[in-house]
Simulated scan of single mutants.
Amino acid sequence: MGVAQAERVLKSKWRTASLAAGWPFPRDWPLREVDDVVTAMLDTADPGDALVRLGRARAEAGAGLGETLLDLAALHAVLDGQCGVVAPNVDALPSRMLRLTATGWADVLTEEAADRGADDPLTGLATRGYLRTRLSELYRESARPDDGYALVLVGLDLTRATGWSRVVAMTLVSDVLRTVFDGGETLASLGPSVAAVLTRRDAALARRISAVRVLAADRLAVDPHVRPAGPAEVWSEHLPATHEEACGLLAALGR
């Protein structure tokens, strides 16, 4: 049997075993990555990269991890010559085969979570993790980023607010920050009651801090349910000497 024919036979047996085991999307089963795994399994090459790519492809196509591993178990059963005799068993998968495929699948979800997680879903502000990334970029660009940048902080006393009024109060503050700092600055949430702006240190900074203080007071005063969270405390912080110290400062401010 030639190589091409052997690959076709293995692919056909794998698909049959996978569908019989309950693969729910027959039309979605064939992938280029399936062919790569088949080739790798019949070759002397290490199939590791092909298995990682298969896991990624399954995740990108919307297959769950359980479905992906059951499909992999079908391949393993076929390779062991068990297809049609013993049902595919995920627990029987070799640990490396399982780990590589699951790693590829999980990588996609991690990337998607990172894409979704750049902004706080309630306030629209960037997350603290994103702000740490921006600070890392600044510290790589300059040994003394504190010469050109500062952190502007806004804090509320949410112990005096209840329920959804806490979220509303921080949402109002985020709107104020977007109004005052509208030039591409990084606006982030450090915690449930603290927001931060990474901004250039220039002649207009003091005026902007004052504007945030005044506008925040006006917005919070409109609603009696959020008014107790104010007045907002607004201040600026110098950037520490190192990125590690800056991350420590963000963590402390967010408590």
Results as ranks from 00 to 15, higher is better:
L125E: 02
L135Y: 01
D146E: 07
V167S: 08
G124Q: 03
R96P: 00
P145W: 01
D157I: 03
S95H: 06
G129Y: 09
A106E: 11
P121F: 14
E111Y: 02
G124P: 08
T171I: 04
A143C: 00
D120P: 08
S165V: 11
V167K: 04
V152S: 12
G163L: 08
A143L: 12
Y130W: 11
E141R: 15
T179W: 02
R96W: 03
V152K: 10
A150T: 13
Y130R: 13
D107Q: 10
G104F: 03
S136R: 13
L100Q: 12
T179Y: 04
Y139V: 00
A92D: 15
A126S: 10
V108M: 09
T133W: 12
G117H: 14
A169Y: 13
E137G: 02
V108N: 02
R128C: 15
R128D: 15
L156N: 06
D115W: 06
A126R: 15
V176W: 13
L177E: 08
V176G: 09
L153Y: 02
R178D: 03
S136V: 00
D175E: 14
D107E: 13
V152E: 05
R134E: 15
W105T: 04
M97I: 13
R128A: 14
M170W: 09
G163M: 05
R132V: 06
S165L: 07
A126I: 00
V154M: 10
R116T: 06
A114G: 10
L172D: 08
S142P: 01
R166D: 02
R96H: 03
L158I: 10
R134A: 12
V167H: 08
Y149T: 00
R178Q: 10
A169C: 11
M97D: 09
V176S: 10
A150H: 01
A118N: 01
R160P: 01
D175Y: 02
S165A: 10
L93A: 07
Y149S: 02
D147V: 04
